[in-house]
Amino acid sequence: MRRLPTPLIAGALIMLALLVCALAPDVVAPYDPIAFDYANLLQPPSGAHWFGTDQFGRDILSRTLAASTIDLQIAAFATLGPLVIGTVIGLLVGYVGGVTDMLFGRLVDLVVTFPFLVLVIAIVAVLGPGLSNMYIAVSIVGWVFYARLLRAEVLVLRQQDFVGACRVMGYGHLRIALRHILPNAARPIIVYWMTDMALAILLGSSLGYLGLGAQPPTAEWGVLIADGKNYFTQAWWITLFPGVALVLAGLGFSLIGDGLADLLDVKR
């Protein structure tokens, strides 16, 4: 058995901590994240409020922890759709090739012409703000990147002799694509998926900041950062701590992605 890569262990520890917070915020958090406390407005970090309080006296630590639930949910749900759709389509166009592949190429050109965020914002604006509409919007656009990545891998693998050997064995297309090509093509999309989760949190936060994602008073890191920006000169802690949490989550996903890249690397 080979040793687990260090980045994977580090990333997994960060994610484990975040998951505990996300799954049981009420247990971990010292205060109710949406309870106002007018006696303690804009308090700096102290023994009672480790991360300080905001303009309504809400505990920043509790709000940051509560937000992890929403943000990890965003990371999972905003990437799952693109991952699944992109994998199916990428495998299909890469394996079948020909006209299918050409049409896919044009579609990709069309989608990547627009900036990702603009396209997502446009779709959310049409569907209406809210998290589920955000997931739909991200899925409509995001699968393209997974599909493009997988297609390139499949195109290379399709030419390899071991795939030829499968055909000489008389194996069916489904068996060749799923059992022989996909496991060998999966590494880049899994690594990209991890990065994409970090990006999804940032996107969710950006949309939250713009008022198109999670709606107040729901605690969400982007919303928290947006809340703090008006008080930044007097109360830096409102913005800083959710920001650190955001960076930490991003770091966790990236480390896991890195570690998985090492782990899934196969010698030829």
């Binding site: 390899q160 002799d161 071991f162 030829g164 050997a165 000489v168 496991p183 060998n184 196969v266 030829r268």
Partner: peptide, 13 residues
């Protein structure tokens, strides 16, 4: 068939 390249002709996974 037996292929030329003993490295590319076996599924590495």
């Amino acid at each position: 068939m037996v292929f030329q390249d003993p490295y590319g002709s076996l599924n590495p996974r």
